[in-house]
Amino acid sequence: MTAPVRVLVCDDQALIRTGFATIIDAQPDLEVVAECGDGRSAVDLAAKVHPDVVVMDVRMPVLDGIEATRLLAGAGVAHPVKVLVVTTFNLDEYVYEALRAGASGFLLKDAPPAQLLHGIRTVATGAALLAPEVTRQLVGRYAARIRPADGGPADVALTPRELEVLRLIANGLSNSEIAATLVISQETVKTYVSRILTKLDLRDRVQAVVFAYRNGLVT
């Protein structure tokens, strides 16, 4: 038997926190090992209970979810923890910063329970969770802020096809949508995505989106 995925739930709203924990604990392959209401407590608890995934709110007292994510999953962290950020549309300006801080993905707070569970399982495997429809709104809205000051595209060591796939990822397309757009199989798309991540030394699809916008590869 595979051990359950250990989950820490961090949200300053008790009703939401309890609701998430109840949904998660009802699954045989998931286990809530701790709950808390602020980012500092999340960082402290993570060091004690060693969760596989932290479900993290953004706006919280003491330490917000962005800084907590940076301390848990950011560059230079010795033993990074996978973080799944939950947010609302009116807070989406913070989500980009959370992704830069090291989050493996994000969901909306009003997502159905099945999406929350899928998100936790996806992030736990080491994959990224980046909902295409949310990506389109989020990154499109803040693209000007994300792009480099000079506005010019970076010289990136990718083939023309790989650049094309990277741009489609950054525009929020899923693998199936990319496959349909380029008239190739989903397996081929997966191969391209893997090559892109390897060549650019990126952790996951989330970092690929951030990279594309930061380097002016998306118009």
Rank of each mutant, 00 (worst) to 15 (best):
P148A: 10
T159Y: 09
Q137A: 14
I169K: 01
R167C: 05
G152S: 11
T159V: 12
L138Q: 02
G140H: 06
N171K: 14
G140D: 05
R161E: 08
I146N: 02
E164R: 11
V134S: 14
A143C: 08
G152M: 14
I146D: 05
L168H: 07
R167A: 10
P148M: 12
A143W: 04
L173G: 01
R141H: 14
A154T: 03
L166W: 07
R147S: 10
L163K: 13
V165G: 06
D150S: 14
N175F: 03
G152Q: 14
I146V: 12
N175P: 05
R147M: 12
V156L: 10
L163T: 04
E162Q: 15
N175Q: 13
L168M: 09
D155Y: 05
A144G: 01
P160H: 08
P160V: 04
A149K: 13
R136A: 15
R147Y: 04
A170L: 00
P153A: 15
L163G: 06
E162N: 06
A154D: 02
L166E: 03
R136H: 10
L168Q: 06
L158C: 09
R136S: 09
S176G: 06
L138D: 00
G172Q: 05
I146R: 03
T135S: 14
L163E: 13
L166M: 12
R145I: 13
P160M: 07
V134A: 14
N175T: 09
A170S: 01
E164P: 02
D150C: 11
A154S: 07
V134D: 12
A157M: 08
A154W: 05
N171V: 02
G151L: 02
P153M: 13
E133M: 08
Q137D: 15
R161C: 04
L138C: 08
L166Q: 04
N171E: 14
V156A: 09
R145W: 11
A154H: 03
N175Y: 03
R147D: 05
E162R: 04
Y142R: 10
T159F: 10
A149V: 11
G172V: 01
R147T: 08
A149S: 14
R167F: 00
G140M: 07
L166V: 03
I169Q: 02
G151R: 04
D155P: 01
G140R: 08
A149M: 08
A170T: 00
S174V: 02
R141Y: 09
T159Q: 09
L163F: 04
V165P: 12
V134E: 13
S174F: 01
D150N: 15
G172F: 02
S176R: 12
V134W: 07
T159M: 12
A154K: 05
I146K: 02
Y142G: 02
S174L: 03
G172A: 08
P153R: 14
A154G: 03
L173M: 13
I169H: 02
E164D: 13
R161S: 12
P132K: 10
I146A: 15
P153K: 14
E164F: 03
A157C: 08
A154M: 03
A144N: 01
P160D: 12
R167M: 04
P148V: 11
A144P: 00
A149T: 09
A170I: 00
R147K: 15
D155F: 06
G140F: 06
V134N: 15
G151K: 06
D150P: 07
S176F: 07
V156W: 03
A170Q: 00
R161F: 06
P153Y: 10
A143D: 07
L163S: 09
V134T: 11
